[in-house]
Computed example of a mutant assay.
Amino acid sequence: MTARQVLNAQLVVDCGEGRASGRGSFTYTRPPRARYDCHRCGTREGPVTGPDAVIRFVAEIRSAHRDRCTAQEHRT
């Protein structure tokens, strides 16, 4: 028998589309974007758009959302 797994949250990241346009630069035809869906409280955070915003969002969203989530599992 296998253990039942529950999806509590989902971090969705679209890395965008584009091409290199010179020395270390990149031109996006579709910029990166990200969002966070909490299935415990039903909240969607984001979306954020742009490479720098996505990097910050991904690095911080789990702990930031945990602080404001209304689901009881986070309150113990």
Results as ranks from 00 to 15, higher is better:
43 T>V: 11
40 R>D: 12
39 H>E: 07
5 Q>F: 08
75 R>N: 06
46 G>Q: 05
41 C>F: 12
4 R>K: 15
29 T>I: 12
45 E>L: 09
15 C>H: 14
62 R>T: 04
30 R>T: 06
45 E>S: 09
66 R>H: 12
27 T>I: 05
28 Y>P: 04
15 C>E: 15
51 P>G: 14
46 G>D: 04
34 A>R: 04
50 G>Q: 03
17 E>Y: 10
16 G>M: 14
29 T>H: 03
42 G>M: 11
16 G>T: 08
51 P>Y: 04
6 V>R: 13
9 A>R: 15
64 A>M: 10
76 T>L: 15
39 H>I: 04
30 R>K: 10
33 R>D: 02
43 T>N: 06
6 V>K: 10
67 D>V: 03
60 E>R: 13
48 V>C: 04
39 H>Q: 12
26 F>N: 08
22 G>P: 07
29 T>D: 14
29 T>R: 10
61 I>P: 09
18 G>P: 01
42 G>H: 11
46 G>P: 05
68 R>F: 14
27 T>S: 09
16 G>S: 09
24 G>S: 13
19 R>Y: 14
20 A>N: 13
6 V>M: 05
41 C>D: 13
10 Q>K: 15
14 D>F: 05
13 V>G: 04
33 R>H: 03
47 P>G: 02
37 D>M: 07
51 P>A: 13
15 C>K: 15
42 G>P: 09
26 F>T: 05
59 A>N: 06
